[in-house]
């Protein structure tokens, strides 16, 4: 049973990775590891910044 739950969680994590749901977490990891000055963006700021940058840097989707 726990193996099934673990498998399901693993799949959900994978799907989340593919969709980019873990982007903020990765940003934080990068922020810590690179020893940036100043506090990191909050989660709200980060996602705002992310979509706003896409406004001026669009990516194509395939046919």
């Amino acid at each position: 049973m726990s193996a099934i739950a673990e498998g399901f969680r693993g799949f959900a994590r994978y799907l989340g990775g593919v969709m980019g749901a873990d982007a903020y977490q990765k940003y934080l990891e990068h922020h810590v590891a690179s020893g940036h000055l100043g506090p990191p963006m909050t989660e709200r700021e980060f996602w705002r910044d992310r979509t706003d940058r896409q406004d001026s840097n669009p990516q194509g989707r395939c046919c």
Binding site: A12, M19, A21, A23, Y24, E43, R44, F46, R48, T51
Partner: peptide, 11 residues
């Protein structure tokens, strides 16, 4: 929802 209510809750 993503912008104002629960930012980052993509899944």
């Amino acid at each position: 929802y993503l912008r104002f209510l629960r930012p980052g809750k993509v899944m």
